[in-house]
Write a protein that binds this DNA or RNA. Sequence first.
DNA 1: TGTAATAATTGATTCAAATCAAGGAAATGC
DNA 2: GCATTTCCTTGATTTGAATCAATTATTACA
Lengths: 204, 204
Amino acid sequence: MEETISKLKSLGREVFYPKGVYIFHMGDPAASFFYLLEGEIGLYRLSREGKEVLVSKVNGEGFIAEAAAFADAPYPVSARAAKDSRLIRFTMESFRKGALSDPAHFELMASVMAEKCLHLAGRIDTLSIKSPKERIAEYLVAHCKGCSGGLIDIGMKKADLAKYFGISPEALSRNLKQLADEGLIEVVGRKIRVKDCKRLKNLI
Amino acid sequence: MEETISKLKSLGREVFYPKGVYIFHMGDPAASFFYLLEGEIGLYRLSREGKEVLVSKVNGEGFIAEAAAFADAPYPVSARAAKDSRLIRFTMESFRKGALSDPAHFELMASVMAEKCLHLAGRIDTLSIKSPKERIAEYLVAHCKGCSGGLIDIGMKKADLAKYFGISPEALSRNLKQLADEGLIEVVGRKIRVKDCKRLKNLI
DNA sequence: TGTAATAATTGATTCAAATCAAGGAAATGC
DNA sequence: GCATTTCCTTGATTTGAATCAATTATTACA
């Protein structure tokens, strides 16, 4: 996998986006997809009132907009650098050309999207079956893995996190407070310390 | 696309499953994926109490379990023929062998999964933003397209449909009744007639 | 640093869905 | 065709989240 990704990079071209600059716009035909090497990218959607609302943030390595590009669809969101970011841009044209000589490139992208499908399907399950509190607990358990001392930086407004959970900001606030009162977590600004991962797991 | 699918078929082998027979089991390594030619397949998950619960039904042509196979993951659900069904089975091994000589096969599967990603992302949006009534309206509008006289056969228990919407069976029953009282639909058993698609759209 | 704008919390209220419980409808099996 | 089981609906109640409103905390920036 790793070595395939590094081979893949040769099919694209490294690009740099300073903080604040748009990478692509919602609705435009997805002629390119990206791989984030370093930095942070915000994905935004235009609401009916014309306001940009955060859909998610990508930080750490990962593909961006590959599904739209391979489906030959328009970008479903706009992307903007939340920090200075280095990416690799793949135009579908150059990717196809390069992948013809080595189908492993296609295979890699197929497996990337396959994993994304499984992940999205998991989120659908969570959203349709679990209660808000369970969803929050699930998120905390998943994110405190590998964080030193279980300290999670949510890296976005709590209102945006609330949207991720499909609840209102107030509901998130109250739920977090409750978990804190029970001694399971500690909330400091946009950081959450998971104090008792075991009991948190029991909530799921 | 169409001609690529028919070329694809040569990489697999047609199989027949009589009603009631299992095609694969949740948890098994996904060594094969399938394309449904004819019939109907139910996808089931094992609940914590060990009961099988319907996740979704596939009827009409379409791929099954391709994401698990390409992600090299276990099947996330079990599949059982709900009606006598004809499918094509692709083992990953034979698919890979055949696709090496023609990367278009990989490209096709990549685009299939790309579209699935977009579709799943859309459902997540719906589940996290829209109200139950809006979700139901969205479903009815989407499904009445192409149905003669707007007659939708939901083809499953109402309780399973309720789970799809992420609500309780009672809530679905009441919501449908309300829509019926307002003259937008008519419910007869497991069939729903959409009487006023326009007003239904306005609810979304 | 101080001020304005934005974000987050908290409280009060409303509303809708979950849950509990029961009755009626439909499908299934014999 | 009848009986049994399963499914669906409806009603009553509880619960939890949305909403509205106000206050406090943070952040941004002049």
